[in-house]
Design a binder for these strands. Structure first.
Lengths: 83, 83
DNA sequence: TTATCTATTATTAGTCC
DNA sequence: TGGACTAATAATAGATA
């Protein structure tokens, strides 16, 4: 079979993604993207950054090690993940 | 005088920027970039995001409207700015 | 500090595994 | 869920105003 050639990055509308499968993929990619971006920002400019992402009201993903963030994240008793 | 033509985006080392003037410009740009990225992520994936940036131990920039973030930011009694 | 400009780098949508 | 792929989009370093 001929492999399907990628058409590369596509322009998307700035609205909630409708297809659940696409949304989940984009969620994973952009969560990593956000944390990587924050990490670079932190290194380049010597700033402390705390990020909390609330997904579906269940999952919590955190970035940074600020005491307040830890407090908040812990208070949710949810699984923590990071990039 | 001939205008100096831009050489476009340059590759930079992933380390704290040494020149204070460059650091400040990059700080402003990337703070906006971070918040814009977070805003897009939030819209695309329907997630709530809270971000706090601590700069020089003085300035606090926040993104998101989560109650805990407001609480934390307020506790610093510092000027709030955003993009 | 912030906005504009531009060539260049960085990210990623869609897809398959 | 997570990694690889690839062309296209998006962000931005450095200079300037």
């Amino acid at each position: 079979m001929m492999p399907i050639k990628s058409e590369g990055r596509q322009k998307i509308q700035m609205a909630r993604m409708e297809k659940a499968s696409n949304l989940l993929v984009t969620f994973s990619k952009r969560r990593c993207g956000l944390f990587i971006y924050a990490s670079e920002f932190s290194i380049l400019c010597g700033v402390e950054i705390a990020i909390i992402v609330f997904f579906s009201g269940k999952k919590v993903f955190s970035f940074g090690h600020h005491q307040y963030v830890e407090m908040i994240v812990d208070s949710f008793f949810t699984k923590k993940q990071s990039c």
